[in-house]
Design a protein around this nucleic acid. Structure first.
Lengths: 237, 237
DNA sequence: GGCTTACTTTGTGGAAGAGCAAAGAAGAAA
DNA sequence: TTTCTTCTTTGCTCTTCCACAAAGTAAGCC
């Protein structure tokens, strides 16, 4: 009942590169990578850097953001263990379109682009996995684009929180805690609004008992209420 | 100077499935498809249909649209010859997330999902091509998402028109004619606004001599002016 | 503790754009 | 031709949301 069965809600498949590989194959893929650690704030790559490696998170969280030509920043996603990023390198694009930085201490696997391409040549299942990965992203951004085009801020914010909760939420006795140091500014960038509007909406929700929020912290006390807002169920249960 | 060198402008690579295949390989891939014709308005697949085939346009134009749970429609893209669509079927997703219909009489190549997957197993280059295809879409929608989140309607509309012009525009003595029967409603759905706002902006541009617009018709008379709006170059140059 | 810094809240004003209504074109059909 | 339908324009109102300002609050550091 919580992340809902709404078809438009991004399913967050996060099919790893290793899906449906045999143990031996997985080991082989794994051994082509090296493990790297970054402290909080460390940068994996910057927007514009040559796209020459693919990453998978072992532990920690990574922020993917983008800066517009006018200098406005937006936060595309915050991802956690198991998630692949930088897969665009497989497509022979010259530069990463986003910046990836460690939101906390992170350990990641890194494959040099050419190594992974070589493996794909020999292991079609790996290619299918990569395609699935990409397809998931296409869907996610198509959905978010549509959301952005058709829905109002309050609803988008509700969705952002629900997405974050389902990805990295942790149950506490108070509710689902979003276990990331996200400022109002960050939430605003993810939702496509301003920090002021985020603050106002959260205050309103707090007065309704839906959430409890503090500095860089949001606890969802009544997920069902947020889902109602996210899907505009009006007053029907 | 026209479609611009702005990095955020979607490059529209449209790398076909056939890129970098030898003639023999291309012929083999080609022979796994059957050619199908649809009259204008014909539907290739509906949002929600089982995703069991991949398409490439030989001639004509195809509209890809999506309907939200509330019944709002948006027009994601209008694509032309050479463009692949329905590639999501490769990812083993159960249903197409969009509806594809012929905007005019269309001839397309159709690959059954399983056939193409079989070919991919034997032809790694094909897999890479598919990955490239997907990666292009990820970038496109990431860009459009960012655009939507950070930019105002006027600029988004300018970009929409420039994109359409570069894809399907035809030079006339009056300017670049967008050679598609797109209503104000269609443009609004692509841009993420209302038909009223589109109409107003076009009127304004017309009075400035930038475009000439009529029923389901837009001629860009002064592309550079639109580019200026799309990129907010102010009065420079 | 007090000081500094970063984050958050809230008030106010204003602009962008949505939404409705109604009238005007442009095709299509009869 | 006239009629019908669809698309477009424009005026008006109203909501949403942005933007700035200023004060409040929490965290880190000396």
């Amino acid at each position: 009942m919580f992340p809902t069965a709404d078809p438009s809600q991004t399913p967050s498949i996060e099919s790893s590169l290793f899906a449906r590989l045999t143990d031996a194959e997985a080991a082989r893929v794994r051994s082509a990578a090296r493990s790297v650690h970054k402290p909080s704030g460390g940068v994996f790559f910057m927007q514009g850097d040559p796209a020459d490696a693919v990453y998978q998170i072992e532990s920690g969280r990574v922020r993917l953001s983008q800066v517009t030509t006018e200098g406005q920043q937006i936060l595309l996603r915050v991802i956690g263990p198991g998630t692949v990023f930088g897969a665009i390198a497989l497509a022979g694009v010259d530069a990463y379109p986003v910046t990836a930085e460690a939101a906390e201490g992170c350990t990641v696997l890194v494959w040099p682009r050419t190594a992974l391409l070589g493996l794909i040549e020999q292991m079609p299942k790996l290619a299918i996995n990569a395609i699935q990965l990409m397809a998931g992203h296409v869907q996610e951004f198509q959905d978010r684009f549509r959301e952005m085009a058709t829905q109002r801020v309050e609803r988008r914010l509700a969705r952002t929180l629900l997405r974050l909760a389902s990805q990295t939420g942790r149950k506490t006795e108070e509710g689902v805690l979003i276990d990331l140091a996200l400022t109002r500014q960050d939430l605003a960038e993810m939702t496509g609004t301003t920090l002021y509007t985020v603050s106002r909406i959260l205050s309103q929700w707090e007065s309704q008992g839906l959430v409890r929020s503090g500095r860089e912290r949001v606890v969802i006390r009544h997920p069902h209420g947020l889902v109602k807002i996210a899907e505009d169920l009006g007053e029907s249960e």
